[in-house]
Design a protein around this nucleic acid. Structure first.
Lengths: 337, 337
DNA sequence: TTGTATGCGTTATCAA
DNA sequence: TTGATAACGCATACAA
């Protein structure tokens, strides 16, 4: 212990620790302590100081997937990047939990209690063990879910402002002069889907355009060239699809349009509420008119909300805004059908 | 504290902790403790645990890059997945230590001390703060570096057996009948590059083939169609490139061959020591003959080595083997040049 | 089978 | 300006 080499003990803590209280220390003493610590290679034990300080500067990230999100849930990855960056900026380290961490399952009773080792925790995933989470929150544990979550009123969350972003796309189309727009979505009740549809509907109503919604469990077989032609015959000039994990809605629409021998934006306009799947992205594929989900920003916002909870601060913004992407698949409707 | 809900204190520790000593506990007591802990959502404080028992079932991962896998996503992320899986399998949770937390840099004195909160730590990154790491290791802290590291003799590491994998590719080409092979690498001294070249040279010598090595700082401008033709005129029938973060060597070679109007494996054979960059991968691009780096396996091996260090166990294998990928860019050399 | 007492290395409070 | 001393929450040896 450096205290032996030096002269005291508390002093060591004062010198080597932050000395938050601003207690004055003699320069000689300070130097002696520093030198002794250097010679002995002494370093304050982080575990001990955290025990005394009653916090450990650890933020948890719990993902309700078996392992940490790999290829399939690739949409999670950029979120993690944002989480990591913001956490680092605020001086927190991250503890990673997964459904299978330490051999337990996420839904198993007590599985979520492990996160208490962190000062607060972020939750991530489609299906959440509501019971367990509720218990955690009820005990006053700081938790933030990434993605809108209304089932648990007590649970704080950050989400993407899909409604606003969807509305922007609709208005963009309306401005081009489209009066009838068809919306293709998968048969799913994820908040992200619901919000997009709501934004679509509201904006359509607001802009005085007729917006028809198609909800399909199997877009690949439902959304065909015939379907596109039929809608066009009804006067539809623009088609909008939602983005999902699989990208099925957009892929179906995209292929159906191609199969019908039509081209955007010449014959019709296309909008995508999100980003295209990997196989329809990049050179060789037109950039869809739509928006990009700011996933990294979402992660960062989650961290900000969580740390504001930790410090009883106010003012973290729960909704992040999407960036509109003009793209090349939307334009004025053809003169006459 | 669960002790209030239950009946004791030591007992709680016995039930919830590992109970390594195998002390017998009444089943009723055990159940009561478990239930109380569940209701209160109680979980042992890791810091206290580490302080008292000198362990807390936490494994650290420290990356020397600013943030986790942003820029190098394809490279680091799969490793992290492997780390996570193996850690989970062994009952450890993961702590991600950020290189540049709160404005500090990894090389700053004391920047690495945080990791001692965990029982042991994995290190990851191109440039390592040798001084700080040496101090850590000198103090007996269990540390494992992911990637070969010879600068610090005391530092344990796991790495990829690039030499063997490179040799396998060369032998594959030699078996096809190639006698002159050109090797393109970037001008870089990373162990991964050095090992590959060594494997290439050794295997070439062993197979009696002439292997010329080109080291280029700017492959894009150095490796041209003319260059390829010149080599072919010298009798070179196969070209091998190394994989790096940027994929520059392979990209240059690939484009030069195309620009020369040549095609693999008809006119020449191509090998890639690693995986192609994203823009040259997937449909539309031939699968290069070469090997895949088992990054997840690398991460898992790192965890195994680290935990073997923790338990003073023996027998963790430091080198992971690459999987040979036949691909479609190599074949027999053309009959006559 | 369970409870008591002690120590782990810091920080924080209070005296000196 | 510096030194005792009491938590911090847990694990472990030991007593009951």
């Amino acid at each position: 212990m450096a205290r032996l080499a030096g002269v005291s003990q508390t002093t060591v803590s004062l010198v080597l620790g932050g000395n938050k209280q601003g207690i004055a220390i003699h320069e000689d003493t300070r130097r002696r302590v520093l030198q002794a610590a250097d010679e002995l290679g002494y370093v304050p034990d982080p575990a001990a100081r955290r025990l005394a300080a009653a916090r450990n500067n650890l933020l948890g990230v719990f993902s309700f997937t078996t392992t940490f999100p790999t290829a399939v849930e690739h949409s999670y990855y950029p979120i993690l990047v944002g989480v990591e960056q913001e956490a680092a900026a605020q001086g927190y380290d991250l503890v990673l939990f997964t459904g299978s961490s330490a051999g337990r399952r996420a839904a198993a009773p007590g599985a979520l209690d492990r996160v208490r080792l962190a000062d607060g925790c972020l939750f991530l995933g489609r299906h959440i063990p509501a019971q367990e989470l509720r218990k955690l929150v009820a005990h006053g544990y700081p938790a933030v879910h990434i993605g809108r979550r209304d089932e648990l009123a007590e649970l704080a969350w950050v989400g993407v402002d899909y409604a606003a972003a969807a509305a922007e796309v609709v208005r963009h189309l309306a401005d081009f002069g489209h009066h009838r727009i068809a919306y293709v979505r998968e048969d799913d009740d994820a908040p992200a889907s619901t919000d997009r549809e709501q934004g679509f509907r509201d904006a359509a109503a607001g802009a005085g355009v007729h917006g028809g919604v198609v909800r399909s469990a199997r877009p690949a077989t439902d959304i065909t060239a015939e379907w596109v032609r039929a809608r066009r015959d009804e006067g539809v000039t623009a088609f909008v699809a939602e983005e999902t994990d699989t990208g099925a809605a957009w892929r179906a629409l995209y292929r159906a349009v191609a199969a019908a021998g039509l081209e955007a934006p010449r014959d019709l306009s296309l909008g995508l509420l999100g980003s295209p799947p990997a196989d329809l992205n990049g050179p060789g594929h037109p950039e869809p008119t739509g928006f990009d989900v700011p996933r990294a920003e979402l992660g960062a916002a989650a961290v900000r909300l969580l740390t504001s909870l930790l410090c009883a601060r106010q003012g973290a913004e729960p909704l992040v805004t999407c960036a509109f992407r003009p793209g090349v698949t939307a334009g004025a409707p053809p003169r006459s059908p």
